[in-house]
Amino acid sequence: MNTLSHLVTSLLDQDVTAPNTQLGVLRINGSDAGKFLQGQVSCDMTKLSEDKSLYGAICSVKGRIISNFFVIKEQEDILLVMSASLVETALNHLKKYAVFFKVTLSVATDEFAIQASFTESDNPQTPDALDEWLPTTISDDAITLTISESPTRASLCLQRNANALADNAPASPQAELLSLLTARPLIDAEHSEEVLPQWLNMQRTGGISFTKGCYTGQEIVARMQYRGKSKKQLALFTWKGDTDVSSTLLDSEGKSIGSVFKAAYYHDLNVAQIILNIEPTEVNDFFLGEQAVALIPLPYRLENTK
Rank of each mutant, 00 (worst) to 15 (best):
L79F: 14
F69Y: 11
K73Y: 06
F70S: 05
M82V: 09
H93I: 01
F69L: 09
N92R: 15
S83I: 04
I66Q: 02
A90C: 14
L80S: 06
L91Q: 14
K62D: 10
V71Q: 03
A84F: 06
G63E: 01
L79G: 05
S60P: 02
L86M: 09
L80Y: 04
E76H: 13
E74Y: 14
V61R: 15
I72C: 08
L79A: 08
I66C: 02
S85P: 07
L86T: 13
Q75E: 12
I78N: 00
E76N: 13
E76K: 15
H93K: 12
K73H: 06
E76M: 11
I78C: 04
E74R: 15
Q75I: 06
N92H: 14
E74I: 08
G63F: 01
A90W: 00
L86Y: 02
S85T: 13
S60C: 06
A84I: 08
V71W: 00
S83D: 12
S60W: 03
L91D: 11
I72L: 13
E74H: 15
T89V: 11
N92I: 09
H93C: 08
S60I: 02
D77V: 05
E76W: 08
H93T: 10
H93M: 08
S67I: 06
K62Y: 08
R64Q: 10
E88H: 13
K62C: 06
H93A: 10
